[in-house]
Design a protein around this nucleic acid. Sequence first.
DNA 1: AAATTTTCCGTGTGCGTACACGAAATTAAA
DNA 2: TTTAATTTCGTGTACGCACACGGAAAATTT
Lengths: 353, 353
Amino acid sequence: MTKVTILDIAEHTGVSAGTVDRVIHNRGEVSLKTREKVLQAIKKLNYEPDILARSLASRKTLRFAALLPEGSNPFWIKPAEGLNAAWREIKPFGIAFEEYRFPYYHKTKFYRQLNAITESKPDGVVIAPVFTDLLQEPLQKLEDSGIPYVFMNTQWENSNYLSFVGQDSMQSGRVAARLLDYCIPEGGQILIFNFISSKGVNSHLQSREQGFMDYFMSEPGAGKKKILTINANTQINKDIEDLLSYHLGLISNPDEITGIFVTNSRVFHIANALEKIKQANIRLVGYDLLDENIRHLRNSRIDFLIGQKPFEQGYKSIITLFNAIVRKKEVPENQFLPIDIITKENIDFYLNL
Amino acid sequence: MTKVTILDIAEHTGVSAGTVDRVIHNRGEVSLKTREKVLQAIKKLNYEPDILARSLASRKTLRFAALLPEGSNPFWIKPAEGLNAAWREIKPFGIAFEEYRFPYYHKTKFYRQLNAITESKPDGVVIAPVFTDLLQEPLQKLEDSGIPYVFMNTQWENSNYLSFVGQDSMQSGRVAARLLDYCIPEGGQILIFNFISSKGVNSHLQSREQGFMDYFMSEPGAGKKKILTINANTQINKDIEDLLSYHLGLISNPDEITGIFVTNSRVFHIANALEKIKQANIRLVGYDLLDENIRHLRNSRIDFLIGQKPFEQGYKSIITLFNAIVRKKEVPENQFLPIDIITKENIDFYLNL
DNA sequence: AAATTTTCCGTGTGCGTACACGAAATTAAA
DNA sequence: TTTAATTTCGTGTACGCACACGGAAAATTT
């Protein structure tokens, strides 16, 4: 039960190791006849190359690149850590890795960096496609060079990505809906709060909202709750407070609103505002384990956070490239990460994911 | 910025590769003076061995073993898959792996298998210590042989395990409590249902119950709910139905019980019984993604399941051995996996974890 | 001082694969 | 048929490390 090597199948075929190597790598210079014989022997002896010896002997180093926002945006710290953690593991296999960052809202630099990546001709790319308009052309250039790329966190349908690693946005909205539905009594009113931005991409916010609405449309018995949506284009505390006060005041009975769903990680702004305008007893659900959100979850001003496993998004993206390119495995087109429901009680176990 | 090899530090020290190799492996036959010089050079040049070349050159294969219940118990299928998935990844490094199984309730065979493992003198072991009494002695034999072992799923404090991979049972009880607390109105009554067994180990059931109770003791405003505990030593449908009917009947107002917490994966029994005795509108929380539980979650007879990431438990246990033994890394003493909160809406993303 | 032992160290080979180089075999051109 | 041009294949070396073997140097004994 010893390991089958390249020499075994050379012997078995009556040729030399070099020849076998040539057919394995499709490097030509082998007659069709012997080529067939070698291939048969490979199948028969069930040979599979030793990945260790392979990358030891191969002098060339593969280069991976990643395009993602700068760490100044707190959400993007974890994915970067995941990328690098995965890289450390595959580094011994002769993989180089370079990050290309851009300021979160800076569309121009995003495209510039993407082109820079294409020009550097890496062997694989991870992209967080924060901006999706005008993505067609630079992405096409990548594809023309035959460079595979993985989408991380956000998806861009109209393209031939190798794999997508992230969350099912619409379904995460349904999860949020379920939680609020359980938490608040019949007749309660629910607020959806969208922090939209003219500069960034908001498509996943829409998906989340839609999933949320879907739930209340389809779940039997849940339709009795009224739902109100606010789209806000501000992050200024005072504005948010006023906005909330106004909408809470609109309702005849101010106690009626009993739940708020914030469709992104800015939920801490709402928590702050609710505290300021002295509104307790409103269930609050939002996204992501930012420090400020964690704080509010711990002191119960936020009730649920939905986690996206940002670290794993990065980790898995790199591993996907590795599996596809080095191990030559099939990789799934979509890798949906779990939609984590996080409370004060279980948050400690999600902090590094 | 090229890679530092054993030859680089040999040159730098003025000795040969063989000598460097001897000090790296503490194989003696090196004078104290040159030994020091080599060690300094290693530090200075920041040398770290190439794990690929290392395991390629090393002829010896390490052997890992795992002790866990048979797959006839549905819970233990996933951990076994995780073990094997991890093994496939590290197999190229010359790792062999053997499973030792035992019938879930068969204490004698458990110990017999544990001793068999010890006698086979593996290089690392994963143990699911389902039975903890009398564990002292066979475990001591393992330790005397200097064989490191990882606890999977269950912990056994009184021992020098390398690492524990599993869930914080008590905290998971708190999570369950939080969920029921949110779901049911003030004045509602809650039932804790323990499926105890005279044959198996119940310690984590106790922890879960205690965490559950703790929550209601400490969380402000939550204490207003009455809590009742049932310990059942049966898995016969009729018995369970009678038991539930009886306790539901005990209460003056039968509608008062609005939540049931089942402390293990047998929650499907309760779901079945509730259906049989025509009790809807009772929130039900339990553990683990068994097929029957999933079914009930999907048709809303179970509201929340708490997931333990059984696949990852297996996966991480093997990887932990690998990191400790092959990569010679520090491994954390306790590796608590997330306490997943699972509903109908997000279950699809947890099925393989 | 020679003989013996002990300590210390260098050399060489192999792990399984990649790839360059050149030789042999085949085919095409003369 | 001879020679040149191609095609096809074998050999050798390298990747970074582990380990066996044996030899030189030092320490110890006669």
